[in-house]
Simulated assay, not measured.
Amino acid sequence: MEHAAQDTDISAQFRSICIFGAGAIGGALAARLAASPALAGSTVSAIARGAHLQAIRKNGLHLHEPDKTGPLIARFAATDTAADLPPQDLVIVTLKGHQLTSASADIARLLKPDGRVVMIQNGIPWWYFHGDTASGLEGRQIEALDPGGLIWQRIGPERVIGGVIYQGAQMIEPGHIRLTSGGLLHLGEPSGGLSPALTKIAGLFEASGWAIKTTGRIRDELWLKLLGNAALNPISALTRARIGEIVDGPLEPLVRTIMIETKTVAERLGCHVESTIDQRLEHTRTLGSAKTSMLQDLEQGRLMEIMPLTRAITQLARMADVPTPANDMLLLLISQLDQSMAQARADKA
C-alpha cells in the first residue's frame, strides 16, 4: 500500500512530461517513463524527427535492454513540432549543446510557469555559473555555449536541474534503441541545494527504472565525466579510432595530458574531481571497442559537439588562468576538421 501511495504521488506531481530529443538516450528515458506503472496517470510525450519519429508513431519505441528476453515496447505521443503539445510540468532535454539555441524557444514554450527542465548533456552546460559560489564567477554567461544569451533568457537557469548520465545507448534502427553498459543518472540543482523539486524528480526517474544519485555538487560530476569526453571524443574523430585503440595505444600519453589539464581547470574553479587520472583511464579501458559520440556524428555527417566538450574547457581555462596547450591544440585540429566536413557537405548540396 505504501508503494501504491508513492506511485500516486509521483503521478500527481508530474501530469505531463516531455522528452525533448528522443534519440538514443532520450528515447530510452521516454520508453521507461511511458511504461512506468508509477506514471499511469500522467501523459508522456517526446520530440523526435525523421524516420525515427515515424517508427515511434507506427509501432512504438522498442527498447532493447541487457539480460531481457524481449524489448520493452512503449507507446507515447511523439511529434517534431513542440507547438503540437500543451505546456508541461517537466521537460527533459537530451539535445547536444550546439542544438540548444535553436530549440530554446520551443523548450521555453513547453514549460508551465512553475515547470522545471532537466538538462542531460555532456560537457560544460550553458547554465554552468548560475548559482556557483565556488568559482568566484557566479552568474557569468559563456558566449560560446549560449550565443547572445538566448537560452539563458528564454528558459532561465533557475528552472534547470542538471543531469549527468552514464548509459551506453545506440539507435540500431528507427524506433529501436539498444542499451549497453551503465544506467546511472546524477541529478543536481545548479545552486547546490537538495530541493523538494530535485527529490521529486529523482523519485520519478527511480520509479521508471533508473539508478539515481542526487548531489549538491553537480559540477563535480560534470567535470568527472568530461575528463574522458574532453580527450576521447576529439581524438577519436581526428583518428577514426575506437576508445580501446586510443587508450591502449601510442595516444595514451596525450589522453593523460588532456585529462590533467582538464582536471586542473576544474579544481581552479572550485570543483573536486574524485577520481585520479589513472582511475579514470582504467574506467575508460572498460569501454573497449565503443565509438565516441563525436566519431558517430562524424561518420553520419552530423555536426560535432565541439563547443561544450572542447572549446568551453579552453574558455574556462582562460577565466581560471590555467594554461591548456594540449586542449588548445586539440581545439584547433577538431575545428579545422569540422570546417572541412561542413565544406564537403556544402559542396554536395
Rank of each mutant, 00 (worst) to 15 (best):
A5S: 14
D7I: 00
T8G: 10
I10L: 10
Q13A: 15
I17E: 07
C18T: 15
C18P: 02
F20R: 09
A22H: 10
G27L: 02
L29Q: 08
L39T: 06
G41Y: 04
I47P: 10
R49D: 09
A51S: 12
A55I: 09
I56W: 04
I56K: 06
R57Y: 01
H62W: 12
L63D: 05
D67C: 02
T69F: 00
A74G: 13
A74H: 02
A77L: 08
A77N: 12
L85K: 13
P86G: 03
P87G: 03
D89C: 04
V93D: 07
K96S: 02
A103L: 05
P113C: 01
D114K: 12
D114A: 10
R116E: 05
M119Y: 08
N122R: 07
I124H: 10
D132N: 10
T133F: 01
E138N: 11
I142T: 06
L145K: 04
D146H: 05
P147E: 04
P147N: 08
G148W: 01
I151K: 07
R154I: 04
I155Y: 10
G162T: 10
M171H: 08
I172L: 06
E173A: 15
R178T: 14
S181G: 09
L185K: 09
L185I: 14
P190A: 03
S191G: 14
G193V: 12
K200D: 14
L204Y: 04
A207N: 12
W210Y: 14
T215R: 02
G216K: 03
G216Y: 00
R217Q: 14
D220W: 02
N229K: 04
A230W: 02
N233D: 08
G244Y: 05
G244T: 13
D248A: 06
G249L: 10
E252Q: 12
L254R: 15
A266D: 02
E274V: 13
S275A: 13
Q279N: 03
T284Q: 01
K291W: 02
T292W: 05
E299V: 01
I306N: 07
T310Q: 13
A312T: 07
T314E: 08
T314Y: 01
P323L: 00
A326D: 01
S335Y: 02
S340R: 14
Q343K: 15
Q343A: 15
